[in-house]
Amino acid sequence: MIKKVEHVAIIVTDMEKAISYYSNMFGFTLRTRRQNNSREMAFLKLDQQPGFEIELIRDLVLQDEYFERGIVNHLAFTVDNIEDAVHFYNEKGISFNSETYNIANDGTKTIFFYGPNRELLQLVEREKL
């Protein structure tokens, strides 16, 4: 059911500094950047490894549970069809953190769940262009 590792999300305190660091140090380029009421997000891609991204997250509303240092927020997996994947993993005993998936402004569908050690995991269906 899982196609590949989709992205890793990293909590940052300075978005400009983080984008610059990953771009200048490792050659990532900015794919998209967006903001909602609680978070600013930037997705960085690496031409040598298409399909894997780093998601940088800067909370506009601070979260109590984050450590003082940078933190990896979640691990995401690409799926072809999120409805089929949710059904498949429900049958295997996974309980998702919401009743249905979210749809981002670029059409990407996502849903979160916890792994066995309370690590945050995510399924992602990219919008088909």
Rank of each mutant, 00 (worst) to 15 (best):
T32W: 06
F113K: 02
A9D: 08
I94T: 12
P50F: 02
I82P: 05
R58S: 01
K17T: 07
F96G: 09
E16Q: 11
E91R: 14
N117P: 00
I111V: 10
I103S: 06
K45N: 08
Y101Q: 05
S20D: 13
N36A: 02
S95K: 13
I94H: 00
V79T: 01
I19L: 06
F96D: 02
I11F: 09
E119P: 03
V12E: 05
A42I: 05
F43V: 04
K3R: 05
Y21A: 06
I54E: 07
L56R: 02
F26G: 02
V79I: 10
G70P: 13
T32D: 07
Y22Q: 02
G107C: 08
H74K: 03
Y89S: 01
V79F: 07
N36R: 03
H87I: 10
S38F: 12
F88P: 00
R34S: 14
I82D: 09
P116Q: 04
Y114A: 09
Q48V: 12
K3F: 09
Y21H: 11
L123Y: 00
K3W: 02
Y21F: 15
T108Y: 03
L62V: 13
T110M: 14
V5F: 14
E55G: 05
K92F: 13
I19A: 09
R58H: 10
S98D: 14
I11L: 12
Q122L: 04
G70Q: 13
G27W: 03
T13R: 11
N24E: 15
